[in-house]
Design a protein around this nucleic acid. Structure first.
Lengths: 143, 143
DNA sequence: TGTTGTTAGTTACAAAACTAACTAATACCT
DNA sequence: AGGTATTAGTTAGTTTTGTAACTAACAACA
């Protein structure tokens, strides 16, 4: 690659950020406008809805999120009555988080929105492109 | 796709964010640790170094950045003596931004780092994968 | 000329994120 | 048992971002 070809759009961290931001802004309206949620809150909600009850620590690890961010998201979701905490008896440092009825309803709605939003993005690509894109992104995320 | 297959790693906005964050963290050490720069500052510096002098407005448009963000980055770069502003005579609302000698040196160094960092990322993929990845990301960014 | 509208860029205030220090519970080791 | 180290999670203070209102310069047109 010659020097002239290396502009920002071919610099992977930049291209990833631009693409990530573009899609995030589009999806925000579902969780932000409709439910007043922040991105981290949506992620925590999704984790609990999709994978079942777990501790904040487990969410941190699965989502690569810092514990302070998760702690605040959990508080916010609790205040909205979307989740419940329950301290584990055998080790009172852990608290199991689980969605309330209302939380499950919100999750179900956002889950549907996520799927259809994802489908609308996917429509711009061939199945092969989607496969490559998905594989590469997940590989990068684990670097 | 069945419901069970739709987890976060296959949700494009999420996968993009995770990948973007992973690569950004890796590249931060170059501009942040070495030069105390923020991401927006690096982007502005790169624009001026790569494409030559231009106004803040032009940078906003090329980089899809909000004007307040650019305004602050320009002030920071000016304070570091990496760039100069000069008000255009024919329309005194515009100011042309250009890198100082020192700014050019920093740009050259970060440019080299960016290229080698990018190459180290690219090494994980086949030329074909890189091509698909690049094309898809730039397409998404323009949606 | 004067009024209205637009544009480039800045500033002020509020929201959100990051870092580091903290608390409370438990484990480990003597 | 008692002291030290870890671990889960929270809180406090700073930095960074986002939003909206602002200033200054110019344009357009009566």
């Amino acid at each position: 690659m010659s020097d002239e070809d290396f502009d920002l759009s071919s610099f992977l961290p930049y291209a990833l950020n631009q693409a990530a931001e573009a899609t995030s802004i589009g999806f925000q309206k579902f969780y932000r406008q409709q439910y007043g949620m922040l991105r981290t809150e949506w992620r925590v909600l999704f984790h609990l809805g999709r994978y079942g009850e777990m501790t904040a620590k487990a969410i941190c690890e699965r989502a690569t999120l810092h514990k302070t961010k998760v702690s605040r998201a959990v508080s916010a979701l609790e205040k909205k009555r979307y989740l419940l905490r329950s301290t584990q008896e055998q080790d009172r440092r852990h608290e199991t988080l689980s969605l309330t009825k209302q939380g499950l309803v919100v999750y179900a709605d956002l889950y549907k929105s996520a799927r259809s939003y994802d489908a609308s993005l996917a429509a711009h690509f061939t199945p092969q492109e989607r496969e490559v894109l998905n594989r590469c992104l997940n590989k990068i995320a684990k670097l």
